[in-house]
Every structure is written in C-alpha cells, then in structure tokens.
Design a binder for these strands. Structure first.
Lengths: 147, 147
DNA sequence: CTGACTGCAAACCATTTGCAGCTGT
DNA sequence: ACAGCTGCAAATGGTTTGCAGTCAG
C-alpha cells in the first residue's frame, strides 16, 4: 500500500518506466477490498482511462507482482485475482456469491511446522477458506422460510 | 481411495452410470501422487484407452468431484490438478520444477480459529505452500559450484 | 429399449503475443 | 533520441459445449 512517490521510486529502481496506467492500476488495487480480477480492474478504470486495454492490465500486474507490490490469488475460478495487501494473511471465498474477503490471522506457527517437517525450502504460502458469507446465509434463511 | 466396487455403488447411488472410462480415470488418480492435470491423466490412459478424449476426462472429474471422490487443486498454474486423496491435507509446490507434493499435517486448529473469528460458515479450505524441492535444491547447488 | 455417456469438432474465454506508433527519461 | 510502453488485433491453450452414435441398466 505505497503512495505514488514510493511506487515511482520502486519502479524506476527496478528498471521500469512510470506511466499513468501503471499508477492507476496499482491505486485501483489499493482502493478496494474486492480482490478484483483483470476484467474488474478494467471496468473500474474504463471511465477514467477509456483507451486502456486488458493487455496493459495483464502486463502491469505481472510487473507489480515481480517487484513485490501485489499478490496473485487463485481461489479456483477461471481467472486470477490481484491483491495490493502483501502482508501475510489468508482469504475466504463465499461459494454462493463469489466474494473474497481477507482473514487477518497470522499462520506463522503452521508455516514453521511445515518448514521444519518438509524437505522443501519453503518460501511462500497461500491459504484459502471456502464457505457461506453472512449476507448469503441471511438470504438462504429467508428463502427457507418462504418455501 | 475406494475400490472399484465401492465406486460403482457410489456412482449408481448418485444417479450416474458406471463406465470403464470413469473407473479408469478414478483409478489413475488413486495410483499416483503427482496430482495430475487433465492432460497428464489423458497421456497416462492413452495406451490403454486410445479413443478416450479430453472432454470425457473433464466431464468425469466434474462428476467425481461432485460426489466427493476427488479434490480439485489450483496451485497457480493455467490448468487444474486433481487429487484422489480427499483427507484433510495441504500441498507444496516446487517453484523450480512444478512438482506438487502432499503435506500430511492437520491444520484443524487453524481452521477452528478461522471458523470462530469469521462471519462466514466455513465449509472447506485449501492450503498451498511454495518453495524449492530437495532435488532442485541439489541441482541449484551443483550449478552454483560449476559457475 | 431409452436416457445417459463417449468422443469428435467447434466454440469459448482468460491470457499472451506481435507489432506499429507513442511516451517517459 | 531511443528503449520501453500502450493498445489494438490476432494467437494461444485449457476447458466447455453440441451433437451423432454408442452403451449401461
């Protein structure tokens, strides 16, 4: 969650140019908790950057991931989602409506246990939980009452 | 990891027909620890079922997943992988060679913690770890010595 | 017998690539 | 200036779909 000045510095330091598109995509990711995919980012930026193409979004998220500014998520859908919150946290997906929320719990102990028991050098991890969100639970209950 | 008799019963009970293709695909998944994707299953069965198509594999894994016989994994590749081991366990992927191994550690406590702190009803979870496997570590070391 | 299944080919769709013109430095 | 970037259009590749013939029950 860096400000534009820091992002500019980092991009330059890593040998990339700083363009309005790149800043806009990173800012769009900072200003949402929806964990959007490429198309959702595209639709959000469309009013402000009407000529921006999906190709630019894909190329940009690759770079942002490469320089460690974003995480790439795959919750089991056909598209990837992107997250500007790079602190260690898990994700939970509603199997009814598809929303993806953060779980701000630190699983350091689990990771340590794996690192000590596995023959791998463990660098990174990704935890996904699946269930029914509060809103969908409410909807399902009211439907059950009607029928 | 059921035997053919039990799989037959289960398929019938759920209203599906039992075909040689379905049994072969399930058995192929039971007899590997590689967590294969559709194409890997296809190549493995090719010698024995030369007319089987990828479409059949995709349709079959859908059904096997629906009746709870297999798990679907997505480690961040462009294809899905399938696992006949449905017991609660995590997976670790080598970022060098792409292999996927099981981690037979039970994360019940982590899951409980999430279930108690989240507003979701938690039904399912998927834990992925990423790192360098023992073989790739060895290769990387010997390369480092040479250069 | 009959509805479900297989396997082929075509369709689909998220993502990637090639390239001409533009822009950051 | 000039290498790297954008945005278009075309290509790619995993997965899905439509459908005619086949097979399990």
């Amino acid at each position: 969650m860096l400000d534009n000045k820091k992002v500019t510095e980092l991009l330059r330091k890593k040998g990339f140019k700083v363009t309005p598109q790149r800043l806009a995509i990173y800012n769009a990711l900072c200003n949402t908790k929806a964990h959007p995919n490429a198309e959702m980012i595209f639709n959000k930026l469309q009013p402000y950057y009407p000529t921006m193409s999906l190709a630019t979004i894909y190329k940009t998220v690759d770079i942002l991931h490469e320089i460690g500014l974003i995480n790439i998520l795959n919750v089991g859908e056909d598209s990837f989602r992107y997250d500007a919150n790079t602190s260690s946290h898990a994700h939970i997906c509603c199997t009814e409506c598809g929303r993806v929320d953060d779980i701000m719990i630190d699983f350091a102990k689990c990771v340590e246990e794996v690192a000590s028991q596995s023959s791998y050098d463990v660098h990174r991890h990704q935890f996904y939980f699946y269930g029914t969100c509060a809103e969908c639970k409410a909807k399902l209950n009211s439907k059950a009452k009607v029928s």
